[in-house]
Design a protein around this nucleic acid. Structure first.
Length: 401
DNA sequence: ATAGGGCACACCAACGTTAA
DNA sequence: TTAACGTTGGTGTGCCCTAT
């Protein structure tokens, strides 16, 4: 709150004579691969108690450039140290060079700087976010990396190997195309099959790398499609390669995004608590219910809502209905427990089983509210086809009662 | 948050090159 | 730097209900 005009750092403007030796020292000792003009400005500002050097940016650039030239000359003359090139090192160098070019179009530097800043800010944001973190984990040969059996004509162009994971097959083919210079010069993403590849892609003058994987399917067999002895070989291959202890760098999922989405979902769920799919809720509420599985709308009835065959013992508790969904069973079960006042008054989580409940709960006299779900599975069986005809479920119960 | 159940769906994994 | 394309299978998550 104390007025900024009184800031010590601004008033205590360091002279160029005082700044120059510090600046030269910084450039001489900077990590060229990491440093940028911006980072140098920041460091300089830090060394001079937070003084803002932006008004002397051009002066600083000139001296940074001079020091860099001297440093490169010294390095190349002394030990043949490599000049600044490639990777991040290009950023400060290029910027300074353009600055020195009197004919360089105005705004180029600012534009480039802005772009770099934008990219840096983006990277910084990503690093700040836990979505951008990685972990090293063992390479497992499952899923996409599951080894498959190659047909002889495919193995022939994969160095004779007849068991490989799909991505490695793609890699081998890319290498083959490169080695044999089969790439279509007019269309970089396509290649012209030679005699060996023609066996894989018959009647094709040209194949795109995108099509390649699809066409390869005809020359690949999954483990499940292989003969027992081939499956044994694949197993051995997997064991052999997993024993090598290869690792991969995996991206950690976007936890923060998921947590945010989850919170949003709960919030919307609370707001739309009175929504009934049958009564036609608002579009937004319906969307929120679909949030986790967006789009399509092809979703079938939930497994929990599917009708099941209820055992006689359980049916006795559920009002005699023999076909109910799990959800309905749980609801009716609790209705019965409350009606019969079977909850332990000292611990409402505990259910004191009467004779009917004991038939369902394996003779247990007491079960917990959570534990009783475990017993239900034995009393609920998938429906036979003909059972589904005339399924009554809750409506059947309603009509009975 | 927790327990039980099954299903649908999204996402991720590797690999290559080019265009934006 | 990222999206584009195509492949398969593992994993994570939400749905749905109920009570504590």
């Amino acid at each position: 709150m104390s007025a900024s005009p009184g800031q010590r750092h601004v008033d205590a403007s360091p002279s160029n004579e005082a700044v120059l030796p510090v600046l030269e020292w910084m450039v001489r000792h900077a990590d060229i691969k990491q440093a940028s003009l911006r980072s140098i400005l920041q460091d300089l500002s830090f060394k001079f108690g937070g003084y803002d050097f932006s008004s002397r940016k051009n002066w600083i650039k000139e001296h940074v450039l001079r020091c860099l030239r001297e440093r490169m000359q010294t390095a190349s003359g002394a030990s043949g140290e490599q000049p600044i090139s490639g990777g991040n090192a290009t950023a400060p160098n290029a910027s300074v060079n353009r600055t020195a070019d009197p004919e360089g179009p105005p705004g180029v530097i600012e534009s480039a700087t802005r772009k770099r800043r934008s990219n840096k800010a983006k990277r910084s944001q990503e690093n700040d976010d836990d979505t951008a973190t990685y972990r090293e984990s063992p390479l497992r040969f499952t899923g996409l990396m599951a080894p498959v059996m190659l047909a002889p004509e495919l193995a022939a162009v994969c160095g004779g190997q007849d068991i490989l994971p799909r991505p490695w097959i793609a890699k081998q083919l890319h290498a083959y195309v490169r080695e044999h210079e089969l790439r279509d010069p007019s269309q970089g993403m396509r290649f012209r099959p030679d005699a060996a590849l023609a066996k894989l892609f018959p009647d094709r003058d040209s194949v795109s790398f995108f099509e390649m994987n699809k066409l390869l399917e005809q020359h690949i067999r999954k483990e499940s499609q292989c003969a027992p002895e081939e499956q044994a070989r694949i197993q051995a291959w997997r064991q052999e390669w997993e024993a090598k202890g290869l690792t991969q760098r995996r991206k950690i999922p976007a936890k923060r995004a998921r947590v945010r989405a989850g919170r949003q979902h709960l919030k919307e769920k609370a707001l739309g608590a009175s929504f009934s799919p049958l009564s036609g809720g608002s579009q937004s509420t319906q969307d929120s219910h679909r949030s986790s599985t967006p789009s399509t709308g092809k979703r079938k009835a939930s497994g929990l809502a599917q009708p099941l065959q209820v055992s006689e013992a359980l049916s006795d508790i559920c009002g005699g209905a023999r076909i109910l969904s799990r959800c309905e069973v749980v609801r009716l079960l609790w209705e019965y427990i409350k009606k019969q006042q079977l909850q332990d008054p000292n611990d409402r989580k505990v259910i004191q089983c009467d004779a009917k409940l004991q038939r369902v709960f394996d003779g247990e006299t007491r079960v917990t509210a959570f534990g009783m779900n475990r017993f239900l599975g034995k009393h609920l069986q998938p429906l036979q086809r003909n059972d589904e005809v005339g399924r009554g479920s809750q409506s059947e119960l309603d009509s009975e009662s």
